[in-house]
């Protein structure tokens, strides 16, 4: 294995882990719901990067056949896997956003702390719909 590959490996896997950690940090420390969801998106991006990097082969072509003999190609499986993973992420994000909209309608805020307080005082969440501009 050449050192060029090692360097690339550090770059790609390092970037993936960095994205993952930044995303997790965002999810753990931010109170604004949308920001938490963005953190989740970062986490998923990092993992997808790690997955696709696993299929890399140096000097290899994209796995698309053209006229002529087929060259050495990268592993096509991780590419298909992250395609699926990205779509799953989109689905979850879409549903999460609809939940955020619903929560905002009931509790009038997208701040985790505020929601927590209001939940404590109105555990069933069927109380008066607080109509107020979000901070």
């Amino acid at each position: 294995m050449t050192s060029h590959s090692d360097l690339l490996g550090i770059m790609f896997y390092g970037a993936a882990v960095a994205l993952l950690l930044i995303g997790l940090y965002t999810m753990l420390t931010r109170r604004h719901l949308i920001r938490v969801l963005l953190g989740l998106t970062l986490v998923e991006a990092g993992v997808n990067l790690a997955l696709v990097a696993a299929g890399f082969r140096p000097e290899a072509a994209a796995p698309i056949l053209g006229p002529g003999a087929a060259p050495a190609m990268v592993d096509p499986v991780p590419q298909a896997l992250i395609l699926t993973a990205i779509v799953i992420g989109v689905g979850i994000l879409a549903f999460a956003l609809s939940l955020v909209v619903r929560i905002h309608r009931t509790y009038g805020s997208v701040d985790l702390q505020v929601i927590g307080e209001r939940l404590a005082s109105d555990p069933d969440g069927t109380g008066s719909e607080i109509r107020r501009r979000a901070p």
């Binding site: 590959s5 690339l8 896997y13 696993a54 299929g55 890399f56 082969r57 592993d75 499986v77």
Partner: peptide, 11 residues
């Protein structure tokens, strides 16, 4: 894990 040398058992 190495890099650039996937086992390719499926691929």
């Amino acid at each position: 894990l190495g890099f650039g040398n996937p086992p390719l058992r499926a691929g």
